[in-house]
Amino acid sequence: MSKIRVSTTVNGDAAEFLCEPTSSLLDVLRDTMGLTGSKEGCGSGDCGACTVVLDGEMVCSCLVLAPEAEGRTIATIEGVAEGSVLHPVQQKFLEHAALQCGFCTPGFIVAAKALLDRNPDPTESEVRYWLAGNLCRCTGYDKIVRAVMAAAAELRQERTPA
């Protein structure tokens, strides 16, 4: 079985990799590229722990074949902070204690950022439905939803011209 060469952009950097035809994007990110922030909780698209943004849309990277990424742009949890400066979603997750074990956290943060990138003023219900593809078993979602709402408020303030 011959491997496929794939050229992509990951977190803003050009990246090339070799993969099996049916490798998942998640496997390549984690095992080939060493980007282990995206997690595998189920391998069937039911938990959202592997959420990445592919060409601007969030997807479960366990349900993307790695060769599909050819020429596409991928954003993972590792690219959410700007250097050492946390994104407001990350900062609010810390301040609101929106994580316990932290395993689902990267997926939630990528998903929440994707929401706020397109909807800076979501209702609680919109946040809950948007994040319904991300399972968390520790928090009961309460503090996660609060953190996302708080991050939205902060982002709105940042975006408002002085």
Binding site: G45, V59, V64, A132, G133
Partner: peptide, 9 residues
Amino acid sequence: IGSVQVRNR
């Protein structure tokens, strides 16, 4: 169908 992640695909 599924979740937002799933419906994006």
